[in-house]
Design a protein around this nucleic acid. Structure first.
Length: 381
DNA sequence: AACGGAATCAACCGCGCATGG
DNA sequence: ACCATGCGCGGTTGATTCCGT
């Protein structure tokens, strides 16, 4: 017997939110903050459950949401993070400022999964599909990537742990898709997780800290993944705390930054060592080619949707100070939509900056609880 | 133009965890 | 220790939109 939903109990409204409801919620949270979500609907005059209000705020009404299509950098980062974190959408979202777990989850399920499959990569394991088939047919150890792969230095493959491989270093490129390779030897992505590092000074979309849970055999993860959007390093590192090895791999993909590891941290779980990657990096190689995965269709449509969002903002803010823009990048099919949260809502700029600053300090709780800042930044709605 | 399947995305559901009484 | 409550997460659903025929 499952629990009945809170909405059922209280005969509350369900389904899509009306603009009036949105306005009520925004007005309330702007003024008082959300405090206890269960009391929000009552105080805000909404016939919704607190859970529904929370979801609506987090996934849609929050002023620091980016919205719009995912950039290639974001897409790459999602893929990389998913390779390590698995379906821990909230953790992935915490490294993508302005994106929600729901948004990322939808994006993954509707788009990325398919692209990966088309590229011959299993979206669950991030291994080549052919390899997975071999594995299921042989039910043996993973020996080598599929034959369509060839060596390259654009992707970095760190030797697997002593327990799972000979330790021979391999790098691979998928010759079918001109892609960064992101092939892993890890058996269980859920065994290892990135954890937020509130005091590292890293931007929240970086991946500065790994926890290696040796009890969970996390050391089988063996891939270094690098995707460095404009000045950030998001290096998903192999977990063997071997500085020289790591340096080699970094060099292999032309990362010129100072990167060093320390084992000084201990995870709060107290079950394994923690590798801290510190960097003042710039990665002049930019993001590795992923051209077949470019979300090229619907750019125009998405832009129009963006404008619809802006109209909604206008409704809330009373004015629009800028419009969505497309920044064409080096690749003709790449585009990056500047959204309201980045360029439009001037009043929210401060709020966002504060939020981003907070994220660096408290990336595990990116929304925070104190919405007085909302009041300041959101202005008089 | 109409239809149907695919894709997208907002929202719901149920579960586990944390916390407080 | 137990229970009630609230929160957050991941999985899933269903409505809407898109797109090909």
């Amino acid at each position: 017997m499952g629990r009945q939903s809170c909405c059922y109990k209280q005969k509350l409204r369900k389904g899509l939110w009306s603009p009036e409801e949105d306005e009520k919620l925004i007005r309330h949270i702007t003024k008082y903050g959300h405090g206890c979500w269960s009391s929000v609907p009552k105080q805000a005059g909404l016939e919704r459950c607190g859970k529904s209000c929370r979801l609506r705020w987090i996934n849609y009404l929050r002023p620091d949401l980016k919205r719009g299509t995912f950039s290639k950098q974001e897409e790459s980062l999602i893929i990389e993070l998913h390779a390590v974190l698995g379906n821990r959408w909230s953790q992935i979202a915490s490294r993508l400022p302005g994106r929600t777990d729901n948004e990322i989850k939808n994006f993954w399920n509707s788009c990325v999964k398919k692209k990966l499959r088309q590229s011959g990569i299993d979206p669950n394991t991030h291994k080549p599909l052919a390899e997975m088939e071999d594995k299921t047919s042989n039910s043996g150890d993973l020996k080598a990537p599929a034959t369509t792969l060839e060596k390259t230095k654009h992707s970095v493959h760190k030797p697997a742990s002593s327990s799972s491989s000979s330790g021979e270093s391999r790098t691979w490129k998928n010759s079918v898709t001109p892609t960064r390779g992101f092939f892993h030897d890890h058996e269980s992505s859920s065994a290892c997780h990135l954890s937020p590092l509130p005091h590292s000074g890293f931007a929240p979309d970086c991946a500065p800290l790994f926890e290696m849970n040796q009890e969970l055999n996390c050391s089988t993860i063996s891939t270094v993944l690098l995707s460095v959007p404009s000045g950030n390093i998001s290096a998903l590192m192999s977990l063997k705390p071997n500085i020289d090895l790591f340096r080699d791999e970094i060099d292999g993909i032309q990362c010129s930054s100072d990167v060093y590891l320390s084992n000084s941290r201990r995870s709060s779980m107290n079950t394994g060592s923690v590798i801290e990657l510190q960097s003042s990096t710039s990665f002049d190689g930019g993001i590795l080619p992923f051209s077949e995965l470019t979300p090229e269709k619907n750019a125009h449509v998405q832009l129009e949707r963006e404008h619809e969002d802006l109209k909604w903002s206008e409704y809330l803010q009373g004015t629009i100070t800028a419009s969505a823009t497309i920044q064409s990048q080096s690749h003709p099919l790449q585009y990056d939509i500047k959204t309201e949260s980045q360029s439009v809502l001037v009043g929210l700029g401060t709020w966002q900056q504060n939020q981003q600053g907070q994220q660096q300090l408290q990336s595990s709780n990116i929304y925070g609880k104190d919405f007085h800042m909302v009041s300041v930044g959101f202005g008089q709605v």
